[in-house]
Design a binder for these strands. Structure first.
Lengths: 358, 358
DNA sequence: CGGCTCTACTTATGCGCTTCAGTCCAGTCC
DNA sequence: GGACTGGACTGAAGCGCATAAGTAGAGCCG
């Protein structure tokens, strides 16, 4: 239970004033090269680390950023996306000696409350915002608070509901890193259409999330480019859970003109859907092709292994953290694009059965 | 970008001194009831929140606790245990207005470095330690630093390698919450033995983790109580990944006296194992029974649905957080027991094939 | 009524750091 | 050689809060 050394201790041992120590340790001018080196050495010997509270109090940054995850408890877990993302984020933050405050809450209102509190308590220098939504109140709040932020995923339209056919880009008050959902969807459709599929259903995630809307949009556009209307290609929304994924699968497979291919917005639903098909005696991929958006161990352990859209989720996190650090360093808000996802064909996709009409 | 109010602002508006405000807002004696109420009201109006840095600096707690997860990046994800745990932890911490610092690192050495840094920087008041290990250096380090801690899961033997047949309980320098691994294992064995299984293999997790050792021990003891020796019932260790789970499954199923039941230490391996069996044409549960330790959506989406050991993971997290808060409040270190897990029989367990010998 | 205690405050100090305003001294220039 | 400059450093103030020490006034007692 040793006492933590302070700059006063260093100053005494190095025979200089406290301010000289502060200058030396913060790479500020005002100390000679020799003195700086000596002070550094003493600090090293003493194992000194700046007291984060004192640093934060004297106007400096707090050296921490925040991340809040707004999800009802029962939908937590399973999905691998999140921990991978955080792991990437940490890699970058740790290198910059920045801590991550993490909080799980039930909904977006609670999330906003957390931002307010963090801001008032001066706990964080900035935040990473996940799961951008349509009509998202968070960017406006963060702008109002002046809390630097990076949204992970491109924000949807801000205040008003989407109405104009031309999507209005959100004002760039906050930075964001975006995934190329359109390009990814094009890849998926290339694959399935190339195999001969014409009736495709996209089992999407939560309709409130911006990327869900974007994927649905992209699917429609890509389908149209290939002459496929909403009677052939469409999306249905779910809450991302295995239960709703299974239910949606059961529903669309029971329709008279059942699809020959299903695209799931996450790995859990894809696995659940594949189990439903197995239960109904529909062989995959002979009668039904399945694509999972986001790869994970899950897609590889099921039988058959699922064709999946692989993205470098940790890399996405790294990019977001870098961008936040850049904003904290005074950089301008901007939109950065992550690497394009790659479709990994496995055993769950094949040409549709021959008798299917086009 | 409003300025954050300070107690000085409150003092001015309430017509009292700053210390009166401090007394009033911290439930300290020294202000009359009326004044206290007035100060409170003003603080409310101004939306005041204590600046966490200032509070931490003046000797008070920092109002944050830490949690570090030491896992190589590629084993992250999928498993639902962790996020559930954190979600439970948060519930309790949020109510106590305590923030959670979260960090992911590669190994235990890095984890120790994080503790040292957090301590030196005075960033956290205490920490939650996950994945207790055999020969764990962390409790000793935390005791040395005087950093209050709660281990999630009972710590294994501390410094020396396990050698004495009588397990020496770790010195209670830190609190811990424990899961009843022995009781759970007894339940699993009751179930399988009751169905008639005599050859059982436990596909365990990382051998370095204390609970892995404890589960292996319990299995052996429970088997012996039923007259089953190591030729009938045994454990093999893995790294928890789907890959090693699958490999271990393939290996034990290829043996001349193949087991009729497999118990997996997590859900991912159980699903992977179940896929291996399917691939080998071994019907589950007719030829092979499978039990997963820890339930999740995974166990319910596969076909057949997996019999699993259900625990209230979020509850476990809540308990740990409560215990940490109690230690921070000056409570004595102690060991608290979480609720006994419950075995949920599903479709993956059944009596072994008739021709099997006993 | 002087001295005591108790309540309800105020004043002052300090936590560890950053930073602004000086101080001191060597060097430079006309 | 006096005025000026700039580098190296010191002193002191202040961030927002907690708290020990001090004070003023009311109440009580012998």
């Amino acid at each position: 239970m040793a006492r933590r050394p302070t700059i006063k201790d260093i100053a005494r041992r190095a025979g200089v004033s406290e301010s000289a120590v502060s200058f030396a340790l913060n790479d500020r001018p005002g100390v000679s090269k020799d003195t700086r080196a000596r002070i550094r050495r003493v600090a090293e010997e003493l194992g000194w680390q700046a007291n984060s509270a004192a640093r934060a109090l004297s106007g400096e940054r707090s050296g921490a950023v925040g991340l809040v995850l707004a999800r009802p408890a029962h939908t937590l877990g399973v999905e691998s996306f999140f921990l991978q993302l955080v792991s990437g984020i940490q890699e970058v933050l740790a290198a910059a000696r920045t801590a991550l405050l993490f909080q799980v809450v039930e909904d977006v209102d609670a999330e906003c409350a957390v931002y307010r509190r963090w801001w008032a308590e001066r706990r964080v220098d900035g935040v990473l915002v996940v799961d951008p939504r349509t009509g998202d109140p968070r960017p406006a709040l963060l702008a109002e608070l002046g809390l630097p932020a990076v949204t992970i995923g491109e924000p949807g339209s801000p205040a008003e509901p989407v109405s104009s056919p031309v999507p209005v880009p959100a004002p760039a008050t906050v930075s964001s890193v975006r995934a190329d959902d359109a390009g990814a969807m094009a890849q998926v459709l290339d694959h399935l259409h190339g195999l001969g599929h014409r009736r495709i259903v996209h089992i999407a995630g939560l309709p409130g999330l911006a990327h869900t809307v974007r994927r649905i949009e992209s699917l429609r556009a890509e389908a149209e480019r290939r002459g496929l209307g909403p009677d052939h290609v469409r999306s249905v929304v779910t809450d991302y859970s295995d239960a709703e994924g299974a239910a949606a699968t059961r529903r669309v497979l029971a329709e008279p003109q059942a699809p020959t291919a299903l695209v799931y917005d996450n790995d859990v639903m894809a696995v659940a859907g594949s189990a439903v098909a197995a239960g109904l005696g529909i062989p995959v991929p002979e009668q039904l092709s399945i694509v999972a958006w986001d790869d994970s161990a899950l897609c590889r352990v099921t039988h058959p292994r699922l064709t999946a859209l692989v993205r470098d989720t940790a890399g996405f996190g790294r990019l977001a953290a870098q961008e936040l650090l850049s904003v904290l360093a005074g950089g301008p808000p901007r939109v950065r694009e992550s690497e394009r996802p790659r479709l990994e064909p496995r055993d769950s996709t094949a040409p549709p059965p021959a008798h299917t009409d086009a």
